[in-house]
Design a protein around this nucleic acid. Structure first.
Lengths: 340, 340
DNA sequence: TTGAAAGCGCTAACAG
DNA sequence: CTGTTAGCGCTTTCAA
């Protein structure tokens, strides 16, 4: 799009203040000292004209960036929007603006979006990748600084901030077992997503016999159908443990639809804790991921890299809390050590 | 931050392909025709080097922008994150990247963020303003193209896309009255926010006698306190109608806390429909705002302006649907014409 | 302390 | 069809 109302440039400001553009720049950036008289004249002109330095031009000349990018699978998932929200907040505090991009959970889109975000020459990128093959979507020789968050890429060469998926999922499995749930169905989008895989592994490690996994995919209609079929056919499990937000949401509605009552007919637990889980009756037991901490840690790591840190890739794993609520507390049995 | 791993420039590509930079540019932009042989050589070099045009430099020279900005009060409110999400999606389809900025519902932050976003010289801005005084936060003489969404600024000079607040709120009031709720308490953040004001006006116009308004503020703790005090003191209203998402959420939890049962002890309705309202028991009656449509319309309007449209400001009002659910259906009375 | 001039990466205009 | 040149807005020498 062509710019019609061309904004004021440093030249206009300089003219108005009766100084050179260099002086305006010096006043604004405070590098070289400028006489109080000139400085004041410049500041007035800047105010009068509502001038703001053109960041692109500034970067072009100085090499100093003040833009960062974030790539997420989508923004409707509250987990991702909380992540972006926190990131935007901390980035701002460090003087960075944030280019936000989502890719609809599609690798191809992601590749395309990464290209387009790279065109802005950001100081760095924070990426929650669609799948493990992130590095295939970046130029071979030298890509921009990247910190990967949440989902684990195949390539261990990236800085990474994620959560202890297996540990938390295992703990949830233990909790279910302790509550007397014997057969547990575990439902998640797809094992191709690393943290779904890690969560499943965590469950399987704790309870190798009585659990089964169903991969429901990413599309809501498909999730509903597959899960419904699975619950109708064969013996009904004691408990359902869903491994991601979308699956959880659909599963919860499906149980109501099938008139399976929680927690009597079936225990219900979720990986990923959202607002509504505290509001429904009974409230839903969930693994609470430290999303804000993840965003903070990812940004901090990026800043470290930007400051010149060039050691080996750092892999950080944050631990999750388990929020035990009514959906996994069988009223008919005496709970052994139930919280809340 | 200084760039250490300087990315490939068009010069490098030109060298590698053995052509001039102008030719590379021509191949990439497809303006002037280039011989197939050269074009192929260029494309290979581009691929090999993973080159992406520097958008800032490109804009600087050509005046063509491919960046837009969006300013919202915050990103944790699902309404705003849905708005941004949709916007990001449609902007991408038109070849624009999106700078996303939130301001914590604070006018000062907003002013500061607007400055910083203007420094990127975006093709246009879409703003959900904190309060009515948006124009005070923009340079007097000629600001960037702006489309305002959701909240109504005092200055009618902006293009605007919002919803029929009064109409929808009035319809909800009528529904409550039809259900036999006589005294209704209306709760919202603050009447300083235009659409809260419009919603309240809408209710007041329909039921001038039996309704009262309580302004709860923007801070969660304050909302909880003020609303609790109001519900404890004086005669308890038949119904509670909350005018924004945060107030709704806190009010819903508060009713549980006070052991006020819905819809028997009190009817409950919300302006702004979110996921959980369908999941709880009974589900919550709500005004559903067409957030996605708003985002589409705002973007379309911005595109029209970018294409040179310079008529009078356009003010678009979209209508809302009322989702009648269990929280406003009194089981003890025979409903006159209740849906679902 | 100040300003003139060069140049960041790119594209538009024009010459060959 | 191709390359040379100029200049977008800015910051950084460097000379005055």
């Amino acid at each position: 799009m062509l710019d019609r109302t061309s904004p004021v440039s440093i030249k206009i400001v300089a003219e108005r203040a009766g100084v050179s553009t260099a002086t305006v720049s010096n006043v604004l950036n405070g590098k070289t000292s400028v006489s109080p008289v000139f400085a004041e004249r410049v500041r007035r002109a800047v105010d009068d004209l509502g001038y703001v330095t053109d960041s692109s031009a500034s970067r072009l000349r100085s090499g100093r960036h003040s833009l960062a990018g974030v790539v997420v699978p989508n923004l409707t998932n509250p987990m991702f929007s909380a992540f972006v929200s926190t990131l935007e907040c901390v980035a701002r505090q460090d003087g960075f603006d944030l280019l936000v991009v989502s890719c609809d959970n599609e690798a191809e889109q992601e590749a395309e979006r990464l290209r387009s975000i790279r065109s802005w020459r950001p100081a760095g990128l924070i990426v929650i990748p669609c799948d493990g093959a992130l590095s295939a979507r970046l130029p071979k020789g030298g890509h921009p600084r990247i910190v990967v968050a949440d989902r684990i890429p195949d390539d261990a060469g990236f800085d990474l901030v994620a959560v202890e998926n297996a540990l938390a999922a295992g703990a949830m499995a233990s909790h279910l077992a302790a509550q007397g749930y014997r057969t547990c169905l575990v439902a998640g989008s797809t094992l191709e997503i690393s943290n779904v895989r890690e969560r499943w592994d965590g469950v399987a490690a704790v309870a190798p016999e009585s659990v089964h996994m169903v991969e429901c995919g990413l599309d809501p209609a498909g999730i509903h159908r597959r899960l419904r079929d699975r619950l109708r056919q064969g013996p009904r499990p004691d408990a359902l443990f869903t491994l991601d937000h979308v699956t959880t949401l659909i599963a919860y509605q499906l149980l109501a639809e099938l008139e399976i009552s929680i927690p009597d007919d079936m225990g219900f637990a979720s990986f990923d804790d959202t607002e509504w889980m505290r509001l429904v009756t009974p409230p839903v037991t969930a693994v609470r991921q430290p999303v804000e901490d993840m965003a903070h840690a990812a940004w901090a790591q990026l800043m470290r890299r930007m400051a010149g840190g060039d050691g080996a890739p750092e892999h950080l794993r944050l631990s999750c809390a388990i929020e035990i609520r009514g959906s996994t507390l069988r009223p008919k049995r005496e709970p052994k050590n139930a919280a809340a």
